[in-house]
Write a protein that binds this DNA or RNA. Structure first.
Lengths: 344, 344
DNA sequence: ATGAAAGCGCTAACAG
DNA sequence: CTGTTAGCGCTTTCAT
């Protein structure tokens, strides 16, 4: 049975293995790194001892001299299925590689930099992040220290890679679709952020494209903003619906759009009264009970692609930056029916 | 502007700070650890230099001597909202503490131990995990090395804490509710696992309670199992519904229940034909389009509680184990209507 | 092919 | 109150 707890057992070190196997630490090190210069017999002996002692190298000690074999991923919000899809894509791409992924959840509001710093303090071999609210100057400096790929940033960085979808196209697809369905009074619900970075964030670009598409058709934009929370999206959506002035809402992303559907239902309305279109195509959007028209940006694929780019830097040694853009696609579902007569 | 990329800048070390400030490393160390024995002037000078050089201690070097100020969390599946709720609760509890949380996503099937090991290799100061598929002997050994709290394990461990909800009660609440609603032919859709551990996993216990509750009322159990995936749950749910032999399904958790709702809708049926009850009360369950009757086990609260238990060990030095049980509550919603006449 | 030794950046005794 | 010193467990030249 287990020993009395509290007496923390010390785990074996490389020295213990070396001693037990009657070889040098260097030999053990070579064996675990699959490095050259070890005879089959030695390898065998060492591996046997490692198994016997259940030895596992400590990452920290390893990091002091070499790599951590760790990829850090910063994710602003665990509750948004789009992000978890990206993680899933990344995770599956990493399978079979010696790299392990750790996720650092965001701290909300403008604290994205803190999370990136803490990942860097851990000396991950590379990182993937989704941090719209960090200045590109700051990121450029971080990118010089550590391989990095940023998702959803439209800046042409030189020290790190970016991976986005064509947000302008996606928003245009969404809005054009509503117009083609016959909608004239289309609102946009988006996430507010600071004036400074806003125009280059995904939401800022979608917003711009929404405005442009409407104006090109001579229609009037109606913009409402909310914070990045279910409650805020619900409230803003409800207000928009209750105004009775619109027949459709293009929402900044699916997670928020689903809150708008909630508000709609709470007002005893359906998407036949007010059409709703989202962005991301999270798995839930295809659920028949939700059936949300949306724009797919292929989250899983983006996650996998991000890992590819990162490994090109880490393993392949690439140092020039790449900027990949994924082409989004419209997913037509039941939430974007043709407009009913205006409520008032 | 940024330097040419590729020329990775070396980040300053404690030595650099000491040199620049004209003091010893020890002094710098004391300042960043807020340790005793530093004069205000020295503290001031060092802090100024730290800010100037933008110095941040490297976690790895720190770990070699002391703590990592990191809490590792193992989560089997990022896509399940219940788990992300637990994370959110944990994360909010950690705010303001010097500890940072990192999440290691599960690798699927029986590879839970691997993730725990890799967290331990990183020498996190403590860890929280949801690993039903790991033997308790193995966990006891790990618990002797590192403070640990396990969620959803019903074993009375001695080297680690456990935190569960009363799964037997929860399942009984769910099944009794269906019986009271008038259902007689109630199926159970659950997640299969190895014979060995199954009876002590949350799903095993819910299954047992389901059987017992039905039999106590003289009703016949109908059990279907699936794997931990949307597709598998969908298929199993669809088959159960198509059989036409049941009027209600108690599903092992909400994520799977939502797939059953999907199958139901795809068969052009509603919960008026086949009632559905889940487990967990994820945020989506309360969405009016879903309105899933379920059993709440207060995920956010559990996450926060897990951190509390862990900090008692890490900071407070507690070494005896605690085993907390949360009392679940039924959440009645529209998905558990009274039964319609049998289909065949 | 193998091992000895230096050192990564920090913390913790211990001296002064 | 401050600085010196000895490691923590690895990787990596560099001899042998």
């Amino acid at each position: 049975m287990a020993q009395p707890s509290g007496e923390a057992r010390r785990r074996p070190s490389m020295d213990d293995v070396a001693r037990a196997a009657g070889v040098s630490k260097a030999a053990v090190s070579k064996v675990i790194r699959h490095a050259y210069g070890v005879s089959p017999e030695m390898r065998d002996r060492v591996e046997r001892t490692i198994a016997e002692l259940e030895y596992r190298p400590r990452v920290a000690a390893r990091v002091m001299r070499g790599q951590s074999f760790t990829i850090g991923v910063e994710i602003p919000n665990l509750g948004n299925e789009f992000f978890t899809e990206v993680m899933a894509g990344a995770s599956s791409k990493l399978r079979g590689s010696p790299y392990q992924m750790i996720i650092a959840p965001g701290l909300g509001d403008g604290r994205g930099a803190q999370v990136l710093e803490s990942l860097s303090d851990r000396q991950v071999d590379g990182m993937i992040a989704i941090s719209p609210g960090v200045s590109s100057e700051w990121l450029e400096r971080l990118g010089e220290e550590i391989p990095m790929v940023m998702l959803g940033r439209h800046d042409r960085a030189i020290s790190y890679d970016t991976l986005t979808n064509d947000d302008a196209l996606g928003a245009e697809l969404a809005v054009s679709h509503l117009i083609e369905r016959g909608h004239q009074r289309i609102a946009h619900l988006t996430i507010s952020s600071d004036e400074e970075s806003w125009p280059r964030t995904p939401h800022g670009i979608r917003h711009r494209a929404y405005i442009d598409t409407l104006e090109a058709r001579g229609l009037t934009p109606v913009v409402s903003t909310c914070e990045y929370s279910s409650a805020s999206a619900y409230a803003a959506g409800r207000e928009l619906i209750a105004s009775g002035q619109i027949t459709a809402i293009f929402v900044g992303n699916d997670a928020l759009a689903i809150e708008v559907l909630r508000a709609l239902a709470d007002l005893d309305l359906t998407t036949d009264s007010v059409a709703v279109v989202g962005y991301d195509d999270i798995p839930l959007a295809s659920h028949p009970r939700i059936s949300l028209t949306t724009v797919s940006q292929f989250g899983r694929h983006m996650g996998a692609l991000a890992i590819e780019l990162l490994l090109e830097r880490i393993v392949g040694g690439r140092t020039d930056s790449r900027h990949e853009v994924v082409t989004p696609e419209l997913r037509m579902r039941a939430s974007s029916a043709a407009p009913a007569p205006l409520l008032n």
